[in-house]
Design a protein around this nucleic acid. Structure first.
Length: 203
DNA sequence: CTGATGATGTTCT
DNA sequence: GAACATCATCAGA
């Protein structure tokens, strides 16, 4: 299966967001390889988007969004959880947030990683609870500050493999989560997920 | 099952 | 000092 190249990420943000659904995210660690299917994403559309971090201009945190498409934009949310985004388009500071993933390979290792970083016990940790949220799957996939600004096109630690596109009828559009402060932008349909998939964070 | 609440630290005002 | 692209836990129905 081929790795997605630069031109894929250079497309318009909403195009990349929907095209990412169904693709395979691959993460290599010293302990083994993890794979998962992307099932839920959100678009963040630059300065005009009242929910995007770049609404207040270029800062230390958002500098990677002013660089190449295909780079990883990571940041710590509520002091506790990492959020994984991909820079899109050639020129604009826009990105796609990966919100949820369906575990495919390395499930044992995902459990180990997530147990270490959360307060959960092995008893209360089901396969379902490994990756069905942006903070959760980052724990399972061992995503942390080391990957800030990482290039998905060249890296041997993390990349995305191509898969056949989904039909329009398989993609559900919805408003984004956790951004009630964003005025008119809070209700825009910029969240996309695979219909009737068990691993989306909220339907 | 539902809804409310606290944890926690980086960033921006 | 306030705000914040979340999650686990607890109380109540």
């Amino acid at each position: 299966m081929t790795k997605l190249g630069r031109s894929f990420y250079c497309q318009k943000t909403n195009v990349v967001a929907q095209a990412l659904l169904g693709k395979i995210l691959v993460r290599k660690t010293e302990k083994g390889t993890l794979k998962g299917r992307i099932v839920e994403v959100e678009s963040y559309l630059g300065k005009k988007d009242q929910a995007a971090h770049v609404r207040s201009g270029r800062t230390k945190r958002t500098q990677v969004l002013f660089q190449k498409a295909g780079l990883v934009y990571l940041y710590l949310c509520y002091g506790l959880y990492w959020q994984f985004n991909i820079k899109t388009t050639k020129e604009k500071p826009e990105c796609v947030l990966i919100r949820a993933i369906e575990p495919l390979q390395g499930i044992k290792l995902m459990k180990k990683n997530r147990l270490r970083e959360s307060t959960l016990t092995a008893d209360s940790l089901s396969k379902h609870n490994l990756t069905n949220g942006p903070g959760k799957w980052c724990q399972s996939f061992k995503i942390n500050k080391d990957l800030y600004g990482c290039d998905l096109v060249n890296s041997d630690k993390i990349w995305i493999e191509d898969q056949p596109s989904l039909l329009d009828s398989e993609i559900q559009k919805a408003s984004r989560v956790g951004i009630d402060y964003a005025g008119d932008w809070a209700s825009k349909k910029l969240r996309f997920y695979i219909k009737s998939n068990n691993f989306v964070s909220t339907a």
